[in-house]
Simulated assay, not measured.
Amino acid sequence: MYNKAGAGVRKMESNRWLTALFILIVMYAGIYYYTKSVMVIATLGLPVALVIFVGIIYWMKALGDKAEAYADRALDARRGAVAEEAVGNLLADLPAKYYVVNDFASKKGNIDHIVISTKGILTVETKSHRGVVTCEGEMLKRDGEPFEMDFIKQAWAEAYSIRDLLTEKGVCNLRPQPVIVFTDADVQVKGKVRGVHIIGIKDLHAFLEGLPAWMSERLSKGIIDCLSST
């Protein structure tokens, strides 16, 4: 096991909570100074006072909306971190023949988990979405509606970034198998979607155990050494 699962998302969550807190402090400071200057505004006359009053209310609402947006993102990040940690804990329980890298920084962003063994190399992306996950044609859906982004495209981009890294380092020209694991959804997808395995967290161990062994231990070790030193 290399790196701690969910560390990157936890850091992002903290940053968003701090941003939301800062915005709220600014907003409350504005309210304080507004209440201190009510008498001053009143002396300017009703029309001017109304304009200034509306402007202040609009400014405070905009700050409140922004703080709420950052707080919502922080909550999403927390759920994402919990999902990564849940999958990371399951991967940590795998036999010694599996090597796991968590929170790997690639050119296409952080990859939640990379699993290397004689069964090949897998890039694993975790999702904390709830609901029922299905597939219609080549489109992944939740409760009958498309996801907010193309997770399949994201998974392939991460896999190819690892292939490019291994090629650049002269290890091999191997393309990892991308996998998306949903931790809180009812996954009703059977097989692959556009070449990507879509599974629920309860099926993760069985999925890994069911993969055939085909990679030499020498190549497996070379990939592990490459990723560990990057």
Rank of each mutant, 00 (worst) to 15 (best):
residue 142 R to A: 06
residue 63 L to F: 08
residue 187 V to D: 09
residue 103 D to H: 11
residue 165 L to Y: 10
residue 126 T to N: 03
residue 83 A to R: 12
residue 135 C to T: 00
residue 148 E to V: 13
residue 117 S to I: 05
residue 78 R to V: 14
residue 102 N to H: 03
residue 84 E to W: 05
residue 70 Y to C: 13
residue 103 D to W: 00
residue 111 I to N: 10
residue 144 G to R: 14
residue 95 P to M: 10
residue 67 A to W: 00
residue 115 V to D: 10
residue 84 E to A: 08
residue 174 L to N: 11
residue 151 F to N: 09
residue 145 E to Q: 06
residue 153 K to D: 14
residue 173 N to M: 09
residue 202 K to M: 07
residue 70 Y to R: 15
residue 90 L to F: 05
residue 175 R to Q: 06
residue 71 A to T: 15
residue 201 I to C: 02
residue 109 G to S: 00
residue 61 K to C: 09
residue 70 Y to S: 06
residue 129 H to V: 04
residue 182 F to G: 07
residue 107 K to I: 05
residue 125 E to C: 02
residue 112 D to E: 00
residue 188 Q to E: 01
residue 92 A to D: 05
residue 126 T to S: 11
residue 194 R to D: 07
residue 105 A to N: 04
residue 141 K to F: 01
residue 123 T to H: 04
residue 159 A to H: 09
residue 167 T to N: 00
residue 172 C to D: 13
residue 95 P to A: 11
residue 202 K to V: 06
residue 117 S to K: 03
residue 96 A to R: 11
residue 171 V to C: 06
residue 176 P to F: 07
residue 190 K to F: 09
residue 188 Q to G: 06
residue 167 T to S: 07
residue 172 C to P: 07
residue 68 E to S: 15
residue 99 Y to H: 13
residue 103 D to M: 04
residue 168 E to M: 13
residue 194 R to P: 10
residue 131 G to L: 09
residue 84 E to K: 08
residue 186 D to L: 07
residue 185 A to D: 03
residue 94 L to C: 10
residue 201 I to Y: 07
residue 107 K to V: 15
residue 86 A to G: 03
residue 116 I to K: 01
residue 103 D to E: 00
residue 75 L to C: 05
residue 137 G to K: 13
residue 89 N to D: 08
residue 156 W to S: 01
residue 138 E to T: 15
residue 110 N to R: 14
residue 125 E to Y: 10
residue 90 L to Y: 09
residue 198 I to N: 05
residue 117 S to P: 07
residue 171 V to S: 11
residue 203 D to W: 04
residue 197 H to N: 10
residue 152 I to Y: 12
residue 60 M to I: 03
residue 92 A to I: 06
residue 104 F to Q: 02
residue 204 L to F: 08
residue 81 A to G: 11
residue 181 V to H: 02
residue 78 R to C: 09
residue 163 R to W: 08
residue 77 A to V: 07
residue 191 G to T: 13
residue 91 L to A: 04
residue 112 D to P: 03
residue 136 E to C: 05
residue 70 Y to L: 09
residue 139 M to A: 14
residue 122 L to R: 06
residue 84 E to R: 01
residue 183 T to K: 04
residue 74 A to S: 12
residue 170 G to T: 14
residue 176 P to S: 08
residue 111 I to A: 01
residue 62 A to T: 11
residue 150 D to N: 15
residue 94 L to F: 04
residue 184 D to Q: 14
residue 158 E to L: 07
residue 116 I to Y: 12
residue 181 V to P: 05
residue 109 G to M: 10
residue 138 E to G: 01
residue 113 H to F: 07
residue 103 D to Q: 00
residue 99 Y to I: 04
residue 192 K to L: 03
residue 82 V to P: 02
residue 131 G to D: 02
residue 181 V to C: 05
residue 178 P to N: 10
residue 61 K to H: 02
residue 128 S to E: 02
residue 138 E to V: 12
residue 121 I to N: 10
residue 151 F to M: 15
